[in-house]
């Protein structure tokens, strides 16, 4: 039996600040092939929203009017104390990444990697590496010459198309290694992503501070490459025939190279030439 409540629904008029929080402090992002709405809440929601608007400039979505797309993902970001802004920006970046990855599980092949793209051809270099091994530093350097796609997660469709995730670059503070600043790619002068980036080459980064100025490269067999890359995938088993999909990508863009280096500046020219050769 259907029961319809006759109890009145209590309503109240929001204050100006609440109205502002509910309407003005929603950031609509388009990243990794998904729409995402971030609702900034808390006493300092305006501060958070303003900072995010600057740092997430490459991902801001213009369309949608008052409402975002019906399939948009949603996330709340809370800030009361403005002194915690940097911490909250870092945390929100991590939550956005997790939300987008979950939203594309079973659709995209997602690699823990940075990527840049030739501004004219869209041919893209994907550099796979665990956290803390130089993806952001390399993105910052290569992004001066090539379109910046991401410093964190590369989402790849089954035809090799990359869904860019040009998030703020997360740069660890030397005086507080647990804290990362979220720097706008626009503020750093990085080139924009081209319209249709495609995977052209995949490399595996192996940073070794003991190497000095020398750089070592090694071509990997498909199986060696697969096991080097598979640990840096997200939600792989959600895909249909996941190992085949990964191996097909590695073969199509191969051979995969393992690049051992100490400092990103030592491989900047080498990687630029590698990408130019595939463009």
């Amino acid at each position: 039996m259907l029961t319809i409540s006759t109890m009145p629904i209590r309503t109240r008029t929001p204050s100006t600040r609440e109205t502002s929080n509910l309407v003005s402090h929603i950031l609509r992002l388009r990243a990794l092939g998904r729409h995402l709405e971030v609702r900034c809440i808390g006493d300092s929601a305006d501060v958070l929203a303003s900072a995010m608007t600057a740092s997430w400039s490459r991902c801001l979505s213009n369309g949608g009017g008052d409402c975002g797309p019906s399939d948009a993902l949603h996330l709340d970001a809370h800030l009361d104390d403005p002194g915690r802004l940097a911490h909250q920006l870092m945390r929100t970046t991590q939550e956005i990444t997790r939300t987008l990855i979950a939203g594309q599980a079973g659709r995209l092949l997602m690699l823990h990697a940075g990527a840049v793209s030739h501004p004219e051809t869209g041919a893209s270099l994907v550099y796979v590496a665990p956290g803390g091994t130089g993806k952001t530093t390399l993105s910052r350097l290569l992004g001066q010459r090539f379109g910046y796609l991401t410093d964190e997660t590369v989402g790849i469709a089954d035809d090799g198309a990359i869904h860019p995730y040009p998030k703020p670059l997360s740069v660890r503070r030397p005086d507080a290694p647990h804290l990362k600043d979220e720097l706008s790619p626009d503020g750093l002068g990085l080139l924009p992503a081209p319209i249709a980036p495609q995977v052209a080459r995949i490399i595996v980064l192996d940073r070794d501070p003991e190497l000095g100025t020398s750089v070592e490269t090694e071509e990997l067999s498909v199986m060696d490459a697969l096991f080097a890359v598979v640990e840096q995938t997200s939600s792989l088993s959600w895909l249909d025939r996941p190992l085949h999909r990964l191996a097909d990508l590695l073969e199509a863009s191969g051979p995969v190279l393992r690049v051992r280096y100490a400092e990103a500046s030592e491989i900047e020219d080498y990687l630029s030439a590698l990408l130019a050769g595939r463009s």
């Binding site: 996941p242 190992l243 191996a247």
Partner: peptide, 17 residues
């Protein structure tokens, strides 16, 4: 998934390769 390439075999079991 089970993948065979160049005579080698890889398995993905419970999310682990």
């Amino acid at each position: 998934d089970l993948l065979v390439r160049d005579g080698e075999t890889a398995l993905l079991v419970d999310g682990m390769a």
